[in-house]
Design a protein around this nucleic acid. Sequence first.
RNA 1: GGAGACGUGGCUGAGUGGCUGAAAGCGGCAGUUUGCUAAAUUGUUGAGGAUCAAAAGUCUUCCACAGGUUCGAAUCCUGUCGUCUCCGCCA
Length: 427
Amino acid sequence: MLDLHFVRENLDAVKAALQNRNFPIDSLEKFVQLDTTRRRVIGESDAINQQRNHSSKEIGALVQTGKKDEADAKKAEVADLKDKQNELEHQRKKVEAEMNDLLSHLPNVPQTNVPVGADESANSEVRRWGTPKEFDFEPKDHVDLGEALGILDLERATKITGSRFAILNGAGARLERALVNFMLDIHTTEHGYTETLPPFIVNRKTLFGTNQLPKFEDDLFHLKDERGLALIPTAEVPVTNYHADEILDAKDLPKCFAAYSPCFRSEAGSYGKDTRGLIRQHQFEKVELVKLSLPENSNDEHEKLTENAERILQLLGLPYRTVVLSTGDMGFGAAKTYDIEVWLPSQNTFREISSCSNCEDFQARRMNLRFRRAGGAKLEFVHTLNGSGLAVGRTWIAILENYQQADGSIQIPEILQSYMNGLEKIG
RNA sequence: GGAGACGUGGCUGAGUGGCUGAAAGCGGCAGUUUGCUAAAUUGUUGAGGAUCAAAAGUCUUCCACAGGUUCGAAUCCUGUCGUCUCCGCCA
């Protein structure tokens, strides 16, 4: 959420940012109007409050000195004030609610070094690693490979749940589990993250903190429960909110978390997109990286976090490229985002396997996550960052496709073999 | 699921209708003192909003949250949420 004062004082900059994000700017005119009204109403309301408080004290004194008539006269006066007050308070609440609603629907302002553009065609590649393998046979996709090997069963998953669900069996299930453990081990032992295992169900306040609400209600799986709970779409939600409503000590920053979790997404509006295989599922597993950082360090932390995620692909020997998303392609809360895209032979292209964002103080403001510097200075909002390190299902796909052999077997990357009980190949 | 207790500032903890944004202690910050460390001592120390060019100042709101009673609520009433204890149940 953008700061009220920031929007008021940087109206033109915010307007430009919204336009670059393909976001309608008419709400900013409404903003100016609401802002003016709000301040007027608060001024009037406070003035009446002051009178009331003052009169109440006088009444107290009059009652104690036995001047009942005068006290009664005053009481009548205050009763009048109270009516006006109620009216103003009502207005104030209404205006503030509208204002909040408006602000909570505004996306973050992109950093100035983010490429401006309408969509993903304006994304810009920042680096590339590895060389896609040349196959001397026609490479299959992960569905053909997995089903032939008996490690992937999409049909029965559809039977027991529905489309966009999958069952992994045998070495396939083991590979998934190996990847989770491998990723967590690297991030905790080599990259300094603290492992955390959060709840997979969260409340609405938490969903608001990381921007899923109010705008993206339909992307979630909601529980039929009077508490308004939902399944997490990513561990970013519970983990970033871990310190919500707290005041952290500057010396404890940055805080770096690595969290495994399943992720649940309704994928509303994506019908017909990536319908084959594991690419786009309603449920998938992910190891998520989250950082809480000092504002002045968040860009450096963002670079490091992205490199930490890339490191996993390097260790697995999977070719990838990293792109910086354009203003039109970025997520709602991000100020800057790098996507890491892994090479998929079957599609002869790079596909997203991680998205690493610096949200600056956008989420922190929503969840009231602040810190104090030494010297007792004023409280400031923490900067929050997150990125997949990595999406496990898509890594599973990448391994099958990149490590497939002519006979349909899958060679296991060496670094994973110890996680697979020494298994060198599947099939 | 049943019964009971409770929810106050960074922490502990006073406060049962006006003089309480809140005692006291701890912690934090600033200073003084003392070979160093430690201790002692003095002062200071919540958050949001409005006003203001800014600071200062002034005003206002906040004692889990939302309502209500009252001229006046941390204090009384109702609801919600949460925590703890005991019983039941269960992995």
